[in-house]
């Protein structure tokens, strides 16, 4: 196991940030921690990178204990925090040299590992980090997190606020790094990125909802999903809320994703209801669940149970 987490809990005063979290990450895995802001992702990262003590539970990173062996973890883990945390007043090259030096290495020694990423920002190596564009800052931060050749890489929301093109390039970089036998734990609020991971944990309100491969999570979706469209989206949302057999109806791009309280629902019945409501250009089609569907279903069920 590259990372092993057992019954970790952490509170800040009355706020429970993490409640009894347990899961394992295998050597060489690209593992995604998927959940919205405030789910507890950053708290878990800070515990695993030895910056914060858990209240309860234990964890190991690269077989080192997060409390007893914290110094070993610091030399074998790379951490890219969510907020840009390099020195804005140092140049690109100075930042990289700085991080290499504090880890007792040189840029030359591990250049192979970062070459692919660093080459793209090398033309700007004399520019101050604070003056870089978002995409370039991200590449520099990743280079700095990798410069000591870590066994495990922690990336906290590396793609938040980044446009789709840069996000796609970033994931391509991660796939290449994974081939160099680095275990990667990456967090993201973008559900579509979940499918790019080997395995994922869905997290919300400090609790893990599910851990599995993205494919298994999507296949385990408990209900039949239909995509529904008519000529008037806003009215469709309102009308589906009044339909007695609606379990959930959420906008998804140009469609609504609909599940019913009745698993034996005949789609014709739904179409008939929409016709009665004077909708036109009605489309109803059965589809496979996405990670986002699953996430919403799990949080929905959780909230309903919490109110019972």
């Amino acid at each position: 196991m590259s990372i092993s987490i057992k019954n970790i809990s952490k509170s800040y005063g009355k706020v429970k940030a993490l409640t009894d979290i347990s899961f394992d990450i295998k050597q060489g895995e690209l593992f995604g921690l998927i959940g919205p802001d405030g789910a507890g992702k950053t708290t878990l990262f800070r515990i695993l990178t030895t910056l914060l003590f858990p209240d309860k539970g234990e964890a190991t990173v690269a077989d080192y204990d997060i409390i007893k062996d914290y110094k070993d973890i610091r030399s074998h883990a790379g951490y890219m925090p969510g907020r840009f945390s390099l020195y804005q007043d140092l140049t690109v090259a100075e930042n990289l040299t700085f991080f290499a030096t504090i880890f007792g290495t040189t840029i030359e020694e591990n250049y192979d590992l970062i070459k692919d990423i660093y080459m793209q920002i090398e033309p700007f190596k004399n520019r101050r980090a604070g003056k870089l564009s978002g995409g370039m800052k991200q590449k520099l931060a990743l280079s700095c997190a990798l410069i000591h050749k870590p066994k495990v890489l922690f990336l906290d929301e590396p793609t938040t606020g980044v446009d789709p093109v840069s996000r796609k390039e970033f994931w391509e970089m991660l796939k290449r790094l994974q081939k160099k036998d680095i275990t990667i734990l990456v967090s993201t609020p973008y559900m579509d990125e979940a499918e790019l991971c080997d395995r994922i944990a869905l997290i919300t309100d400090g609790e893990i909802l599910q851990v599995d491969t993205p494919q298994a999570i999507m296949q385990a979706f408990p209900k039949t999903i239909y995509k529904v469209r008519t000529s008037e989206t806003y009215r469709l949302i309102k009308d589906l809320k009044t339909y007695p057999k609606t379990h959930s109806a959420y906008p998804f791009g140009e469609y609504l994703h609909f599940t019913s309280t009745d698993e034996n629902l005949d789609p014709e019945e739904l179409i008939h209801f929409l016709e009665q409501k004077k909708h036109t250009q009605i489309e109803v089609e059965k589809i496979d669940a996405s990670i986002e569907d699953t996430f919403m279903e799990l949080t929905h069920t959780r909230e309903v149970n919490a109110h019972d």
């Binding site: 959940g35 802001d37 606020g161 609020p189 949302i237 959420y250 906008p251 929905h300």
Partner: peptide, 24 residues
Amino acid sequence: DEPTGGVDPITRRQFWEMIYREAN
């Protein structure tokens, strides 16, 4: 300006329902 960054998927959709309502 990027009103829903980092917001959970259900709330994101409730937010868009508010947008639709106002456009309506």
